Simulated assay, not measured.
Amino acid sequence: MKLVLAALLATAALPAYAQSNAELEVKLAQLQHRADLLKDLDAIENLQAAYGYYLDKGLWGEVADLFTATGSFEYGQRGVYIGKDHIRRALLLLGPEGQQKGWLNEHMQLQPIITVAPDGLTAKARWRGMVQLARPNQNGQWGEGTYENDYAKERGVWKIAKLHFYVTGFTDYDLGWTKSAIPAEGPSALLPPDRPPTEVYRSYPGVYIPPFDYVHPVTGKPIPVTPPADSVLGRK
């Protein structure tokens, strides 16, 4: 990041002899704005990476503290949980709090595409999540999905405002994708969500592509998504 900032400032300084003070001030303000947005990108990437590490080790309190006070958490078809307390309880659906012998709960955060709003106060990001699960006396599982998240900056600190993990599919570790498809779990009766699932869809072998929050980087146009009719069951 420091090298990027130094390069931007050096570029601004080169033609300084031919520019007025007003022009320089405008250019420096623009460069400062770009530098601030780059720092925001870096902070959001670190925030999401921290989420993955805490989730892996069952640190539910630390995960919940990454969210805003009114933040929401939605994992697959389990429904939407709102607020830090509800999010922490919802995470118990993924396993006990803290590291447990014989448990594996790996959620890797990959392929980020982060879009920060011009005012630097909100952002959206799309990620890919690779999942490895193990439970005592159960078969292991592979999983995959897409995150579509919202973020908010509060008093200079980036937090998760909305986390939505769209489950692409889960499969038995030994059988693999061609022989096994584990259905996405629905809302819990023991720990019911605050809201039903935002979108009701079928995971693998069904096909569903979560809507893209960003436009095509070359054409600048929205990315159309038309899934098979039998994969989308509804939207709340």
Score class of each variant (00 low, 15 high):
residue 203 S to P: 12
residue 92 L to I: 05
residue 154 E to Y: 04
residue 228 P to N: 10
residue 229 A to L: 13
residue 35 A to W: 11
residue 156 G to K: 04
residue 111 Q to M: 13
residue 118 P to Q: 11
residue 119 D to E: 14
residue 21 N to E: 09
residue 162 K to R: 14
residue 170 F to T: 00
residue 42 D to G: 04
residue 40 D to E: 02
residue 28 L to Y: 08
residue 197 P to Q: 14
residue 68 T to G: 15
residue 235 R to P: 00
residue 24 L to Y: 03
residue 128 R to M: 04
residue 10 A to R: 11
residue 61 G to Q: 10
residue 74 E to M: 06
residue 225 V to T: 15
residue 220 G to V: 05
residue 43 A to V: 05
residue 11 T to Y: 12
residue 173 Y to V: 00
residue 147 Y to S: 06
residue 113 I to W: 08
residue 117 A to T: 13
residue 170 F to V: 00
residue 20 S to D: 09
residue 103 W to T: 01
residue 123 A to M: 07
residue 226 T to D: 10
residue 226 T to R: 09
residue 23 E to M: 13
residue 40 D to Y: 04
residue 47 L to H: 13
residue 195 R to Y: 07
residue 195 R to W: 10
residue 109 Q to H: 06
residue 214 Y to L: 12
residue 10 A to P: 02
residue 66 L to N: 09
residue 10 A to H: 11
residue 115 T to K: 02
residue 224 P to Y: 12
residue 77 Q to A: 06
residue 67 F to D: 08
residue 106 E to P: 00
residue 46 N to D: 14
residue 144 E to A: 15
residue 193 P to I: 06
residue 109 Q to F: 13
residue 16 A to Y: 07
residue 27 K to W: 03
residue 103 W to F: 09
residue 14 L to S: 09
residue 98 G to P: 01
residue 10 A to F: 12
residue 4 V to Y: 14
residue 192 P to D: 10
residue 89 R to E: 15
residue 206 G to C: 13
residue 97 E to D: 06
residue 73 F to P: 01
residue 47 L to N: 11
residue 129 G to E: 04
residue 37 L to K: 10
residue 30 Q to F: 00
residue 9 L to F: 03
residue 25 E to R: 15
residue 95 G to P: 02
residue 135 R to L: 03
residue 182 I to C: 06
residue 1 M to A: 14
residue 103 W to M: 02
residue 214 Y to K: 09
residue 138 Q to M: 07
residue 113 I to A: 04
residue 57 K to A: 07
residue 22 A to C: 07
residue 142 W to K: 03
residue 142 W to M: 04
residue 132 Q to P: 00
residue 74 E to Y: 08
residue 48 Q to V: 15
residue 118 P to C: 07
residue 35 A to S: 15
residue 29 A to G: 03
residue 192 P to N: 09
